[in-house]
Design a protein around this nucleic acid. Structure first.
Lengths: 159, 159
DNA sequence: AATCCTGACGAAACAAACTTGCATTTCGAG
DNA sequence: CTCGAAATGCAAGTTTGTTTCGTCAGGATT
């Protein structure tokens, strides 16, 4: 819930750049880096959390370490693009824990999914559940990741 | 650098489940949730960070709030798949701040990129830099995200 | 069977970080 | 130039994170 139209100055952006890399950095160090006192840093962080500029604070888990070594991309094309069916698909994809990311896109596909699974058997079962059991999926194309070259949700920040 | 073969018990998994949702949760509360003392929680977290199970601790920034409202997927197909050229492409894609994620994949494409930009002009400039100026890109397909239905790097954890 | 060693735990003491209150400063509008 | 809103720094208070230390359980050795 963005509480208000946020407008970020260079202090905020500098703070974000740090937190986006490591949000365990003490406010004292952030303050030294951006030339602000720790409380000032703290107030800015809180405000950005409340306004939604900072959407969350999370630990990144290595999939392979928890038995989910396979990352898969899927382009999904629907039969019908009726609003109601689109929304139903969004809800179904979102509900699946294996679906890490889901985007509704323009172009030759309707959805792009990023999926994390333990093995291809699990993926096969998931496709059955998400695609074949749905009557609204015309086709889908699968891309298996051989190398997660760069992974993150880091956003480029203006200077 | 994973220091050793990690093996996670149900305590570790329960802790991970919490941290990957909100890593600002106090260790005391985590302890209550999983039935451990705060120091025990703390030791397990540190170990998972050192062994690479926890790959990072980051704040998630809302792209639209920092002037990067457009998310784009790109499937890239190379001319040559010589190892050296593949590696060069990995390095070039990784180096671009606009490239949030880069995967080397099997299937009808060689790479899939997730890109964040301010506007289509910026994307056009980026394609010029990454694809046209490279002599090794045969073609690429662009998908513009209309809705970021589900975004995150949350990994499903075993029970 | 007794012993030693290793690894993990909890309680308490300790250190560090976060948070709040308040006086002061800054900055833009009138 | 003056005023007021908003942000700042400092200092105190609170919460959290970290270390220490004594205990216990399991496994291997003697």
């Amino acid at each position: 819930m963005p509480a208000s139209p946020p407008s970020l100055d260079s202090f905020d952006l500098a703070i974000l750049a740090i937190l986006q890399r490591d949000n365990t950095t003490p406010q004292r160090l952030i303050g030294e880096a951006v030339n602000l006192s720790a409380p000032a840093v703290q107030r800015r962080i809180k405000r950005m959390e409340q306004t939604g500029v900072i959407a969350g604070n999370v630990a990144l888990v290595e999939p392979a370490a928890v038995g989910q070594p396979i990352t898969i991309f899927v382009e999904v094309e629907l039969e019908s693009e009726r609003t109601e069916l689109i929304d139903a698909a969004k809800r179904q994809f979102s509900a699946a824990p294996e679906v890490q990311q889901c985007y509704y896109v323009t172009g030759e596909a309707d959805f792009i999914l990023v999926i994390t699974v333990a093995d291809m058997g699990a993926y096969e079962a998931l496709t059955r559940k998400l695609f074949f059991d749905s009557n609204n999926v015309r086709k889908f194309r699968t891309f298996v990741a051989m190398d997660r070259v760069k992974v993150g949700l880091t956003v480029p920040l203006p200077d």
